[in-house]
């Protein structure tokens, strides 16, 4: 499996504060990868490092096999849509597309025209006057028409209303299907990612807590509910992700390949959101070894 992004012991420090430390991650190609984690987990820093916007303080990062932002050729292969989708407020939609055409050798003018026309973006409108959804769509159009092999997006839908959010994610799904590109997008809202991602990485405190294909993750994680005393004789070979107790009942999230047959437990499936929350659960801090779900 080839990687679009590989980081080894990657760290970034601002003054005395580490925004990202000792991050080791391997993102496979050919997926729409969702990067989730609580605020402050280092998502934005990791993505900025991947986009070449930042230089690492420690460790190494390679994107598509090269150092990010090192050469114009490397930059041409990676699209980056930053948080809050910054655009030049004084420039019109048409001028933004012209900017893309001037600055990118692989620019797909037809795609840019078609997409902005389809979205109903008036070419003579200034970007400063666009709605949040239109701004995000224009930024996505710039990222796509650049024809990158990898498109990185940092919280692209965070500031959008639910309708604009759905349209944006729909547009993204169509584009990834059409152009066979790898996508990494971050969000702290799993419900957004569920619609578009087929691969998920949970990042907590700079560390990868779990990474794997969404289907596989859902198939191997279970929620067990049983009487409180049952937890005492829980099989030791089970990988426990999170545990919560009430007076009489225990709820355990586990990862396992073989099915559970113990009649003491009621087995139910997890939603992706529950799964992510289980991994973000602070009470299971001690089980923080990264888990890789094998194919």
């Amino acid at each position: 499996m080839t990687s679009v992004l590989q980081a080894q012991a990657l760290g970034k420090r601002y003054g005395k504060r580490w925004a990202l430390s000792d991050c080791t991650i391997d993102i496979p190609a050919g997926h729409v990868v969702g990067l989730v984690g609580p605020n402050g987990a280092g998502k934005t820093t990791l993505l900025k490092l991947a986009g070449g916007q930042l230089q690492p303080t420690t460790g190494d990062i390679t994107v598509l096999g090269e150092r990010p932002g090192s050469t114009p050729a490397q930059l041409a292969r990676v699209g980056f849509v930053a948080q809050d989708t910054p655009l030049y407020a004084a420039l019109t939609v048409a001028e933004h597309l012209r900017l893309g055409a001037r600055l990118n050798p692989r620019w797909d003018a037809a795609l840019a025209r078609e997409r902005s026309g389809h979205l109903g973006l008036d070419p003579s409108h200034r970007a400063g006057k666009l709605s949040g959804g239109q701004r995000a769509q224009l930024a996505l159009t710039l990222g796509l028409a650049k024809r990158p092999e990898l498109l990185i997006m940092d919280e692209p839908v965070a500031s959008l209303d639910p309708l604009a959010r759905r349209e944006f994610l729909q547009g993204l799904t169509e584009a990834t299907a059409d152009h066979k590109l790898s996508v990494v997008l971050s969000s702290h809202l799993v419900s957004d990612l569920e619609k578009v991602c087929d691969y998920l990485i949970v990042l907590v405190d700079s560390r990868v807590r779990v990474a794997g294909e969404v289907d596989r993750l859902l198939a191997t994680h279970h929620r067990l509910t049983g009487a409180r005393h049952a937890f005492d004789r829980f099989p030791s070979d089970q990988r426990v992700i999170s545990v919560s107790h009430t007076d009489r009942q225990s709820t355990v999230v586990i990862r396992t390949d073989p099915p559970i047959h113990d009649p003491a437990w009621t087995v139910s499936r997890l939603s992706l959101e529950d799964l992510v929350l289980a991994y973000m659960d602070k009470s299971t801090e001690n089980r923080r070894a990264p888990l890789e779900v094998q194919q």
């Binding site: 916007q53 932002g69 699209g79 655009l87 030049y88």
Partner: peptide
């Protein structure tokens, strides 16, 4: 201040240029 450096730095043009 506008964050547009993040937009322009990711076109296929190095920061130095």
């Amino acid at each position: 201040e506008a964050g547009t450096h993040l937009l322009v730095w990711n076109q296929s043009v190095t920061r130095g240029r």
